[in-house]
C-alpha cells in the first residue's frame, strides 16, 4: 500500500508538462491516478517522477468545434463527461460510457486521458473511441501531432505516445445523422472487470424518419479480448453497403479469422473469452441494427 520514492511535480500548462516529461528521465503523467497509483503500490512500476496534469485547466475543457467534433481535454474526469449535457446530446455513447464506469469515487478522479494512455485491455474507452474514429491530440516539445485510434492504441499497455509526449485532448468527430453506436459487454459480477466487450457503430443513409436504408460506414471493435482494441475489418466490410435489416446482425461472425491470441486471466479460459466476444459482438450488432431501424 506504499509508493516507491518519487517526485511529485505539478506543472501549470500543457507545455510545461511536456517539457518536464521530456527533461526528466523516468517521469510519467499522473492524470487521475486511479490505475497508476495502484501499480505503484503493488511495486509493478518505478517512475522517477509523477507529472500531475489533473489541474491544468486547458486539459479539463469539454467543447465542440464548429464541425461538431467533440473535444475532450485529456484530464476531463468521467464524472465531468457524464455530467456534460452537451456531450450527452451530441455523443451519448461517450457520456453513457463515462457514467457507467467503475464507481462514483473513481469517476470523480479518473480521466479519459488516463484511460486511453494506459490502454489496459479491460479499459472501457479505447474500443469505444476506436469505433468513433477519435483522434488523439498529442503535445511534444517540438509541437503537436494528431494520431488516429489505430496509431494511438498500439498494444497491451502500449500507445503511440513517444517519450516526453503528453496527450492533451481526445477529439471525437461529429456523429453522422442516423448513426447508431451500441456497446455490449460481459462482466465479472453485475458490473465489474470486463471479460469481453464489443462496440459497433453503424452509419446509414436516409437521415430522416424510420425504416430501412443502407449502411454507409461501419465500425466493429472488440475490447477486453485482446491486448488493445481490435477493429474487425472483415465484419465492417460485410456490413458496409448492406441493407439495414433485422437479419444483418447475424451476417457477421468473423472472429475466427482473427489471428491474435486472446487475453487470459483467472476469470475464464481463452476459448470462453473468444466465444463471449462473438456473443457480445452479435448483441452489439443487433442493438445497432435495431437502433438504426427504430
Amino acid at each position: 500500500m506504499l509508493l516507491p520514492p518519487l517526485r511529485y511535480l505539478r506543472p501549470e500548462t500543457p507545455g510545461d508538462a511536456a517539457a518536464l516529461l521530456s527533461e526528466m528521465d523516468g517521469s510519467v503523467v499522473l492524470a487521475g491516478g486511479q490505475t497508476l497509483l495502484n501499480m505503484l503500490k503493488l511495486d509493478l512500476a518505478r517512475p522517477a517522477a509523477l507529472v500531475d496534469v489533473h489541474r491544468i485547466s486547458a486539459l479539463r475543457d469539454i467543447r465542440h468545434r464548429e464541425d461538431g467534433t467533440l473535444i475532450i481535454g485529456a484530464a476531463v474526469t468521467y464524472s465531468a463527461l457524464a455530467g456534460s449535457s452537451e456531450t450527452r446530446r451530441t455523443h451519448p455513447a461517450v457520456a453513457d460510457m463515462a457514467a457507467s464506469l467503475v464507481d462514483r469515487q473513481v469517476r470523480n478522479r479518473g480521466t479519459i486521458g488516463g484511460n486511453c494512455c494506459l490502454n489496459d485491455p479491460a479499459n472501457n474507452f479505447p474500443p469505444l473511441l476506436a469505433a468513433l474514429d477519435a483522434r488523439f491530440r498529442v503535445l511534444g516539445t517540438d509541437g503537436e501531432r494528431v494520431l488516429r485510434a489505430d496509431e494511438f492504441f498500439v498494444g497491451t499497455l502500449a500507445t503511440g505516445l513517444r517519450r516526453g509526449e503528453l496527450l492533451v485532448a481526445v477529439e471525437v468527430p461529429a456523429m453522422p445523422p442516423g448513426s447508431v453506436v451500441a456497446h455490449e459487454h460481459l462482466q465479472v459480477g453485475a458490473d465489474s472487470w470486463a471479460i469481453a466487450r464489443a462496440v459497433v457503430r453503424l452509419d446509414r443513409d436516409g437521415t430522416g424518419g424510420t425504416g430501412e436504408g443502407f449502411v454507409t460506414d461501419a465500425r466493429a471493435v472488440l475490447g477486453a479480448v485482446y491486448g488493445s482494441p481490435l477493429r474487425l475489418h472483415s465484419v465492417e466490410r460485410s456490413l458496409s453497403s448492406a441493407r439495414v435489416s433485422p437479419g444483418l446482425a447475424d451476417a457477421a461472425t468473423a472472429l475466427r479469422e482473427v489471428d491474435v491470441r486472446p487475453t487470459e486471466d483467472v476469470h475464464c479460459s481463452t476459448a470462453y473469452r473468444l466465444e463471449m466476444a462473438e456473443v457480445q459482438l452479435r448483441r452489439a450488432l443487433r442493438a445497432a441494427v435495431e437502433g438504426s431501424i427504430r
Binding site: L42, D43, L44, L157, E264, D265
Partner: peptide, 17 residues
Amino acid sequence: GTGATVGQRVVRDLVYA
C-alpha cells in the same frame, strides 16, 4: 510473485515485447 497475479492478462504481451 505480484506480477503473476496482477499482470495475468497483460504479462504475455509485455514479456514478448
